[in-house]
Design a protein around this nucleic acid. Structure first.
Lengths: 195, 195
DNA sequence: CTAGTTATGATATACTGTGTTTCATAAGTC
DNA sequence: GACTTATGAAACACAGTATATCATAACTAG
């Protein structure tokens, strides 16, 4: 974000165009069929310019996805920092916000889950969210343990699994239902810490 | 399995050598650095032979992984078909078997989770296991519903997430602990069907 | 064991996509 | 307005993929 401001306007322009191009092309032709040439042509940017900004297609894709999905993570953080609510309320409200965000950026999330080249970006995102979840667990139960780390990871895998499933099924059960299921399972996972 | 028998001995030999070669090379050099040439050289097989059996590196990889991990799935199926045990017993015994299998084939599972080209194979495996889980749910609670489909998917995502995490952490908490955690979370997910 | 079939190996070759170099020009910065 | 720098254009080297041909070795069926 801060680094972004330090960039030359021309650089910002090039990156933005390349980012928009790769997303459009993946949606049109699929991840496997895109090339650097096709990306630069679509972006109306010189072929060499690509290499001045990114070292590979996957790096460009990772940059685009993380740029966008950071919004979800920040939202998540704010939700966690609101200490006035109870645990269940926390999950409910959060669930609605999350699935709203997914619905608004469905294309990006779909690419995140289906493109092999997005695997690294997906893992980074998961790890980031898991760290937030661990902090959350530590607030409820004092002390730190491997078990909480595992539970946090299970929570994240479940969340991302629900999102992926929802997108693959045409966002079929409505947002509220998904948020409800998310809440139930998240609470269930959290409570299994006792055992 | 049946198709395998129909193959010429030379074909079986070639495929086996190629399969062993790609696994060895991925472990040595990482997925990103392998080429068809390096695979065929390691397998001591002609370059063209590769194309006579597989249309891409990812197809070869998918074939190898699914061939091996089918063992886990079959084990899973047998476990499900044993109707004499209660639900918790089912999960406990299953958990031990699963993590034993993972420990024995750690290399393959590691490749399955870290190689971008294995993403398709991973998804096929998950889907397969999820279908088994749905049948299991339908045995406990009559009738079918989208919710059970979602719970089955959550169960699978949690299982694979635990395996991935365990491998990334050097199989740190011992097998029994992981099996116990698996059991707890699986039961928790299952019980959230009531809500 | 033999005759017929077929997969393999070796070689040559075409092609696509990646990545780099050079230099003039346009666009940004201060 | 002077300086700096990113961009565009073109040529190029190169790696990796993919196919074609043909002689040879290995397998199968009888």
């Amino acid at each position: 974000m801060q680094i972004e401001k330090q960039l030359d306007k021309r650089q910002q322009r090039s990156r933005k165009l390349l980012g928009e191009a790769i997303i459009a092309l993946i949606l049109e032709q699929g991840y496997e069929n895109i090339t650097i040439k096709s990306i630069t042509e679509r972006a109306d940017v010189a072929y060499v310019t690509f290499f001045r900004h990114f070292e590979s297609i996957d790096h460009l894709l990772g940059w685009v996805l993380e740029e966008s999905i950071n919004a979800l993570v920040e939202m998540h953080e704010q939700s966690l920092n609101d200490e006035t609510r109870s645990v269940p309320e926390c999950f409910v409200q959060e669930g609605v916000l999350i699935f709203e965000h997914v619905a608004q950026h469905a294309d990006l999330y779909r690419i995140l889950f289906t493109s092999p080249g997005a695997l690294a970006a997906l893992k980074r995102t998961k790890t980031h969210v898991a760290k937030l979840a661990i902090e959350e667990f530590q607030r409820w139960v004092e002390g730190t343990s491997l078990v909480y780390e595992i539970l946090a990871m299970s929570y994240v895998n479940n969340l991302f699994g629900l999102i992926e499933w929802w997108l693959e099924h045409g966002m079929q059960p409505d947002l509220a239902t998904m948020a409800h299921i998310y809440t139930q399972i998240s609470l269930a996972i959290r409570q299994s810490a006792a055992a």
